[in-house]
Design a binder for these strands. Sequence first.
RNA 1: CGGGGCGUGGCGCAGUCCGGUAGCGCGCUUGGUUUGGGACCAUGAGGUCGGAGGUUCAAAUCCUCUCGCCCCGACCA
Length: 478
Amino acid sequence: MADPLPSHSENFAEWYNTIVQRADLADYGAAKGTMIIKPYGYALWENIQEYLNKRFKKHGAKNAFFPTFIPSSFIEKEKDHVEGFAPNLWLVTAGGGEVLEEAYAVRPTSETTINNTVGKWIQSYRDLPLLLNLWNSCFRYEMRTRLFLRTSEFLWQEGHTFHATWDEADEYARAILFDAYLDFYVNAAAMPVIAGRKSEKEKFPGADITYTLEGLMGDGRALQSCTSHNLGHNFAKSFDIRYLDRNNELQYVASTSWGLSTRSIGGIVMTHGDDKGLLMPPRLAPTQIVIVPIFRKEGEGAAVLEAAKRVMRDLDDYRVELDAREGLTPGFKYNDWEMRGVPIRLEIGPKDIEKNQVVLVRRDTGEKKFVPLAHLLDEVKMMLNHIHDTLYARAKKFQDDNTFSVDSYDEFKQRTAGEGGAGLLMAHWCGDRECETAIQQETRATIRVIPFDQVQEKGKCIRCGNESNGRVVFAKAY
RNA sequence: CGGGGCGUGGCGCAGUCCGGUAGCGCGCUUGGUUUGGGACCAUGAGGUCGGAGGUUCAAAUCCUCUCGCCCCGACCA
């Protein structure tokens, strides 16, 4: 523990790998590219789940479970889909010592198996909309992995909904993007994100439109934070899902799918962390307040612990931990909990008991405050909100400071040169896929998102000079 | 798949070139002194050196084969 962390500003990649493991969020699994999520990391995931479940349910989606094994022929039914996922597919080819007649794909995502099933559930317009959400893990073969950001197996939720019309599906996909995901990132994770849609090249294989939220990490690279797809009639046609409408006419359903993964944990780490370690956004923090009791002599110990436990009971509405570990100095504990990113530290010692007060220390600013017990609840509530606001404002300022309008390809190349991230580059683009591909090959920057609030502005494509109606967001991404 | 690196107590590493009874730091045990910003002293436990084969009186060290992991590129939530 005494080892210093790698520098957050100078060696971001190493900082990330070290802090994720040292703060007990996660560790490497025994199988290559897999991840063990430890209790502290999983508690964060549970808080994410709780927040999102409420929003999904508000929009009528119900949780269900679908099998991990998918007959491999299913994957092949949607043309774009199979092309998109084939390189990442895990296959189960044997069971019980026998080679299987048909190999099973290990779920890379559940569109195909869901569509295969719900065809039987949907006969009439009265069966619509059908709104499902799954919490599960997905498997994608990956060459290069990083804890939380890219692993061969990851946890996520995948929503799948079925609607009478394309427009209704589109509306639902947007509603989830805004009311669930954007709300989550802004109000829970304290992360500013840019909402918009993906280019044709970057969209989900099998989707008509992919909506997305794009975030900017502390090293200037972008992170796709979630996606919400309007799948249109593509899967309905591949899996022949039709219903009788009010006029007794057979219609294809329109569908959506939308997902947010444990990658979001990587996003939280990379957005808020600093040289001291993690910095948990208060509304998701597994531990919001840690109590560090302080005493010198044996005799003081019992009284201080007793007082600490009383304070803990007062703070029943919060996620509080009492650090009663023996033989560790307070200084060690301060550093330990700062490294783990707990938003508020509460110190209580003999002097405080005498004065009927406690000491609160903010993780984000280091500010120390002596608080009378009578005001503790109000103060904690306010402080957690302030920390949330501060984290969001900080991240927003970082995003603003690292967003650049770029008008020449020379400048574009200059900004994307080198190893690190390049920030968000707002540049004109002709809309042509070949230009997009060429830019990626020449600069390693991709179009992350075409913002909803794109300013209609005449300009010339950064690469080919053809006409463009507005800027899109380029970045080097995770 | 291309390039680089590494496998030695729980963790991080030295030792390998030049063969000779396996070492350091952290952590852990026990006892004592400490404790409002990363405590100290003493004590003890813990390793068939990734695996297989070979050379040798003798292999962590030399030879052959093999397995695995990490980092950097192309692909990707």
